[in-house]
């Protein structure tokens, strides 16, 4: 009986520890960029949410496709209606982890090179990705950045024949998260 109680107390400590180790952002940013001599796609989404579990390096990130804004209304319309089809696939989600999280000391200011690996879902299609990034720890806040290309074809985003030459298959994603320690109120 006593042992059970002790185990319970220990577990409850571990549990509280796990909660207090979560870092969150609801104001993450994804920029997408693609340029050919004919056409520039330059969009930004500032409503990206992410949780980083500092106990084990797990990361989830999610955003709504409709939150992307573009300079030109026409590009925004095409992005939504023809390419990403948010009516069918409203979200993009990443679930994965920082592979070399043991190299990171979240209690020590510094810039750490990281590798992020996991499953990225765009346009209803999921692929395994593994990309380099940076984690910057400064006074208890964590900034995570990464940038990589995604192939439109991989995620079954169809470009009309007329635009094939104007839009490159590789689209650059630049991702920026300013995490804050999650405090349960």
């Amino acid at each position: 009986m006593k042992i059970k109680l002790i185990v319970l107390i220990i577990f409850s400590f571990i549990y509280t520890e796990a909660i207090s180790q979560k870092y969150i952002t609801k104001t993450g940013k994804i920029e997408i960029f693609s340029q050919t001599p004919l056409f520039t796609i330059d969009g930004v989404n500032k409503k990206v949410a992410s949780i980083l579990n500092a106990a084990n390096g797990d990361i989830v990130a999610s955003t709504l496709v409709r939150s992307f804004r573009f300079e030109e209304a026409l590009v925004e319309e095409h992005f939504n209606e023809n390419y990403l089809e948010p009516n069918k696939f409203p979200k993009s989600i990443f679930k994965g982890k920082i592979v070399n999280f043991s190299d990171v000391d979240i209690n020590k200011n510094g810039t750490y090179d990281i590798t992020i690996a996991g499953k990225l879902t765009i346009h209803g299609v999921t692929h395994d990705i593994s990309e380099p990034g940076k984690l910057i720890v400064k006074d208890g806040n964590i900034t995570g950045t990464t940038s990589f290309n995604v192939s439109l074809q991989d995620y079954k985003v169809k470009i009309e024949k007329a635009y094939k030459k104007a839009i490159k298959d590789a689209i650059l994603l630049k991702i920026h998260f300013n995490y804050k320690l999650y405090k349960k109120s």
Binding site: I51, S62, L64, R66
Partner: peptide
């Protein structure tokens, strides 16, 4: 309205 997100 852009949709429903598990965190936001």
């Amino acid at each position: 309205c852009d949709g429903f997100d598990m965190i936001m």
